[in-house]
Design a protein around this nucleic acid. Structure first.
Lengths: 187, 187
DNA sequence: CCAAAACGGTACCGGTCGGTTCCGTTTGAG
DNA sequence: CTCAAACGGAACCGACCGGTACCGTTTTGG
């Protein structure tokens, strides 16, 4: 059975990749910070690229779990996703969406990292559609991609403005879009 | 007077940076493709970082000129910015917004590249606001940042979906947002 | 036509990249 | 307690990074 070296590598790599970018972080730095031996690293992963994919796959799972939890805490309506984003944007270490960042950094659209990132957004879109359906919205399938596009716009804008305001801006747009008087903002 | 070496460096660097990312393109490659000598490069630019800034500043100017031209060609209304984006997204070499990409790649928000990128978006927002004002929209100042956020969302989504459709999706959202029956789509 | 400036090519620098190999130590299950 | 598996550390590899120095050639303004 494996010890905890693999988890430490994933934890450290996820943090460093997100904070500095995948290309900017060398294997050396990951080993130093995680205190994992060089040999152990290559025992667990064929190479750096495979670590990147493993990190993204785990983050995909965890991020969507986090989103579902925060949406529930904010009332469970479709607009709650923007309240969740606002929380995210306010964190000091916020540096955009790891999957958008990956697609930007990994220029090759056929690369594994690109595929994982694209898959993540598909799953988020499916989740948003389920929220819309649960809320009884008639045009859920058409509205979900629009809301996800708003989320991505808010994320990019928040990265630029270094503020949580874009989440509220996107929420207001979404509210108008849904043609609803709007659920009340989360407490 | 300088010859054309500097321009060739800017042209080549802009193309390679956009296609592959700033970090992924080495000085070596820029010199090879542009057929500029190594010494000549460092006669024109103190270092790679300065070339990056020069490329971004020139692209900021040109991109906004291009936008204004295409908006005019599409009727000059605020919604025409999304028709312009649709054109952009359809190009085979489309790889997102060079300024968003730069902010993602250059993690340091205090860096020169980051500043240029942020400034670009501010200028675009000002331009969009002027379009809204010219169209007689009463809430131009409040609406402009929302439209720019929609533009950024469309750009990121187009990069992921490899399609021009997100531009139309964003246009539809903007139309709803402006509370207008909507100018007819551009010819 | 000639001199000065701009140029392209090359060798070289220290540093860092991702990746391989070996070796001695820690750890945990039987 | 034992012993094999998992581990951390370090030396090493070729390749490439951004940057410097010096070369002989081309271009151009006076």
């Amino acid at each position: 059975m494996p010890t905890r070296a693999r988890e430490r590598l994933l934890d450290t790599a996820e943090e460093l990749f997100y904070a500095q970018g995948v290309r900017a972080v060398g294997v050396e730095q990951i080993l130093t910070v995680s205190k994992v031996g060089r040999a152990s690293f290559y025992r667990h992963f064929p190479g750096k690229d495979d670590l990147v994919v493993a990190v993204l796959e785990r983050r995909d799972r965890r991020w969507r779990e986090w989103l579902a939890e925060r949406v529930a805490a904010h009332g469970g309506g479709p607009l709650a996703v923007f309240d969740a984003l606002a929380e995210r944007f306010a964190r000091a270490d916020f540096r955009g969406c790891a999957f958008i960042n990956t697609m930007v950094e990994a220029a090759d659209p056929a690369g594994a990292a690109h595929r994982v990132a694209a898959g993540h957004k598909d799953r988020v879109t499916g989740y948003v559609e389920s929220l819309l359906t649960a809320a009884g919205h008639p045009r859920a399938a058409a509205l979900a991609p629009q809301l996800v596009m708003l989320m991505d716009g808010a994320i990019v804008t928040a990265l630029r403005e270094r503020s949580a305001v874009p989440a509220l801006r996107a929420r207001a747009v979404a509210e108008t879009l849904m043609g609803a008087a709007g659920e009340p903002a989360a407490p």
